[in-house]
Amino acid sequence: MFELLGIPPQVLLGQLLLGLINGSFYAVLSLGLAVIFGLLNIINFAHGALYMAGAFVAWMLLNYLGIGYWPALILAPLIVGAFGILLERTMLSRLYHLDHLYGLLLTFGLALIIQGLFRNYYGISGLAYQIPDILSGGQNLGFMYLPNYRAWVVIASVLVCFTTWFMIEKTRLGAYLRAATENPTLVGAFGVNVPLMIMLTYGFGVALAGFAGVLAAPIYSVNPTMGEQLIIVVFAVVVIGGMGSIMGAIVTGYMLGIVEGLTRVFYPEGSAVVIFVIMAIVLMIKPEGLFGRPA
């Protein structure tokens, strides 16, 4: 077996896979943030809390109503999305004419409240969520062992990211969204109901977070702080990719997951900060982000 810089390939590939899985979550979450930022001009700090809520909703559906993983994969994002729409209608919609900072502060406050509520009722020790039977076990690929559920996470996230990208970049609905991102006033003057679009877009972006939460439930324990830890990294991903760039958010998400995995192999001490180091470098060299347009 070949060795690279004294690293056994099993370790390398194992970390690459782990990086790809983390990247899957980064991609789905930063995609939601990018969609929301594009149209609403709001930096949705509640995204991590809503991701966590997605995992909890899946857990509750199972433990209180006996609804399993597969229905939860659809239902939990819908529930989280509906909750997002409620937030948008009652609170966020009052801030659109103000600076980004107000939306950020409001959603930051909401994140703390949502997280606090779950912490109050469920503690911080974490709840277990079983991997669905059909995805338990794994494949021995010869050079490494691939758990089925982790493979599914990567596939599901790629599918969701691709579908979202396709909807936004290639369909008529997406053309409305892109146009309204650029000039909502003019799109409204063409007879399009822009406030409705904004509401549904927020609901959709947040539903993506809920979806990621359900995907995460069987891997990480369902925990009130699970979103808090992740969201800071995801914000760095969005900054690196470029605020509001759909493809940028997706590609950067996977890429940085892999970079993080590789760092864990070659320089483990740096793995926790590598994304932030990249963010700092990107901000210095190309402040609009790798895929962003110059402002």
Binding site: R178, A179, N183, L186, G188, F190
Partner: peptide, 24 residues
């Protein structure tokens, strides 16, 4: 009336800045 409702009455604007969308 809201602009979108006015538009649906059959009025359309070609704005001075043209308003061509760069992402379309």
């Amino acid at each position: 009336m809201q602009p979108r409702d006015i538009a649906r009455k059959g009025i359309a604007l070609c704005p001075e800045e043209r308003g061509i969308f760069s992402s379309l």
